[in-house]
Nucleic acid binder design. Sequence first.
DNA 1: GCTTGACCTTCCAGTGACGGGAAGGTTTAA
DNA 2: TTAAACCTTCCCGTCACTGGAAGGTCAAGC
Lengths: 129, 129
Amino acid sequence: MNISSASQQSGLPLKTIRYYEDISLVRPARAANGYRDYSHADVHLLKFVQRARSLGFSIDECRLLLSLYQDENRASAEVKALALAKIEEIDSKIADLKSLRATLSTLAAHCHGDNRPDCPIIDDLAGRS
Amino acid sequence: MNISSASQQSGLPLKTIRYYEDISLVRPARAANGYRDYSHADVHLLKFVQRARSLGFSIDECRLLLSLYQDENRASAEVKALALAKIEEIDSKIADLKSLRATLSTLAAHCHGDNRPDCPIIDDLAGRS
DNA sequence: GCTTGACCTTCCAGTGACGGGAAGGTTTAA
DNA sequence: TTAAACCTTCCCGTCACTGGAAGGTCAAGC
């Protein structure tokens, strides 16, 4: 099928699908006229990547997941390790964001937020504690 | 002072400081030999930006914060609004990450993680639910 | 057969916020 | 005097795309 059908079925933008071919992530056949020709299996792979990306896996991680997906003899432990590492990454990001939030929240709470120029947020940024 | 002193005092890498000049965020004077010459006030602005960046403000937001910082007649309400908007952004990111984490966690929990090829994580990515 | 418009192709440039490294000028200490 | 430690500009690379231009192909309607 043409790229636009593949796009509809996978939920990925045209540009993204072309990009995935560029970086040899999902490579379709070519029709006689030079058009990309996606098989159902290709679309399946595109969907696979779409899901993995939406779960926060990087392109390189997707590449690994795809190879594991296509490896009949893979050990599920390898995939699980990848998922657990991702969870740790996510936890770390969440912790960072929470700490950020707390700081900003404290600053905002001390700012009266009116027409006067005094502002504890600015003061803090300026290093006046 | 030279750029390396400014770097030490602000905690920002040389490259970052030069980049901030490129994008007209913090522009130092130039010495006769062409070297950048940072005043104490410049270093103060660099530190200000460093703090704001570490709080998750984008460069453009830093630009706005800097102009507010340097505006004697600013209303603190404007700064507070920026901080509150940032908090909302952070909340939204945290929510996204938590949802991601829950999904991955469920998947990982159902994966036995041994040498067998059966893997519910891969199955889910492949759309076999 | 012709035109129109919807496809498709490749290629080039830009995003944000820098980082790496090359090529070359300046200063300072031994 | 020479070496090394600075400094400069410039260009490319990052990540995962996105936008747009220039041009080829195809299907439908007249």
